[in-house]
Design a protein around this nucleic acid. Sequence first.
RNA 1: GCCCCAUUCGUCUAGCGGUCUAGGACGCUGCCCUCUCAAGGCAGAAACAGGAGUUCGAGUCUCCUAUGGGGCACCA
Length: 499
Amino acid sequence: MTVRVRFAPSPTGPLHIGGVRTALFNWLFARHHNGAFVLRIEDTDRSRYVEGSIDLITEGLSWLGLDWDEGPDKGGPYGPYIQSERLDIYHQWTDWLVEHGKAYRCYCTPERLERVREANKKAGRRVGYDRRCRNLSEEERQKLHEETNGEFVVRFAMPLGGQTVVNDLIRGNITFNNEELTDLVLMKSDGFPTYHLANVVDDHLMEISHILRAEEWIASAPVHAQLYEAFGWEMPQIAHLPVILNPNGKGKLSKRSARFTSEGMSIPILLHEFPEEGYVPTAILNFLANTGWHIGEDQEVFYMDEAIEKFDISNVNPAGTAFDINKLQWLNGVHIRQMDPVELAKLLKPVIEAHGYEVNAGALLAITPHIQERLKLLPDVIEFTEFLWKAEFEPVAPEELIQNKMDAGGQQKALQAAYDKLQTLDKFDADTIEAELRTLVDEIDVKAGQLFGSLRMAVIAQIVSPPLWPSLEIVGKETVLERLKLAIESLDALIPEAE
RNA sequence: GCCCCAUUCGUCUAGCGGUCUAGGACGCUGCCCUCUCAAGGCAGAAACAGGAGUUCGAGUCUCCUAUGGGGCACCA
């Protein structure tokens, strides 16, 4: 059997990271089985439609590298792939159901429905439609038809008794009592189908073999199963993926979760927020693949080619999963470290520019290998390399030049010695600078940190910086000497007997 | 309230009846390395929700309880 799966988002705004995980698992499953990954847009709710969402979705998936074989932009043999363009198909099958007595027209107003719901709630009964319109006589039907000006919805006539068993690929059999299920609306009064109808019709017509969707759908799965039954269609294999929970493990991950932010860590939830905060695609994919699934062998870090090879839906953990932002950040650092430095520099450039700095391409390329293992998020580049982009040098206060167990005079002498030594160098590269200054440290009998720390403050003017030697090389001999001179002079102010 | 799903360190997870005095990872703590910060190395604290069964034997199977989650729309 050919494997065909689909990711079917609604164009109601930006992609949620939970949706991305669903897309990823579908994609992994398709690629593992050499099947097709179909993108379908479920825009059957006109009130929630957000202009531009479809582009947001396709751009997001593309950014991550999740490519689809059929979809609204690519077409394919089962199109159209946008549900609002398939309305006649839904009507055709709805009519079929009504004609065969498996669905019926319901004339109840939203107000009446609300009253029924309230009454049920009060009486402690299960909430749901009371099936008033299910067994209308033709006269009653006609009367209601006139009263409501022909406005009606079509409801599915659920079997009233018996049980429905749904075989979930990761949970096993789930059994429901039919009497506890209500007659869901299939066709809305505005002529658009509900998810329940559209999803079943499309999955069948598009020959979807496996449905991998979020856990939220478990409750309506038996109705879907009964719909396939009513149509006489074979139901695809189905699996419900665990929900992603808030970082504290309480509740479904939601936009509100940003407020749970602790330790100053902000929590991205919408896909587009991830690049904004400096996460890289391979890390996000790796992280998402790790939530609810594991690749085995105690392995945490991997790329999608390996995940495709090993993906197995039956290994998915059925329990909900807290969004572990710490682990994501760690993984991001790991993936950054494993990148080609040239590629990393390309990613870093716009981040620095976004901070209003002009980037010197040569300097960036030179410094990148030295900051690579220091970055967790792309914007961390700023704190490490700011000294390279600042238009004007801002020297530190002379006090900050003085290292542990040093006094101003001693510090000044040490810096002067460094100045003298550096001045003589013809080759001003990292290796040479390091070798010369290390021997100098012995010669003038100070500790490495006592000289190098001061040098860092004098030239780079940052407490934290990339390694000194390459930093000095990139800053350049002339500038290094200039700044050193400035620092040495500034120390005069701290030496009372200077004159 | 009703239905459904789940429950191993704080978190992500391994474990599919004996090899579990429960393994890995993140985070945390300590030490080492060290020009700062990282990275890396080593060490450490840290879990089978509880109770009944089944079995020679249960983290692994069954039931109950508790807890958490999902759902109960003319939203998906």
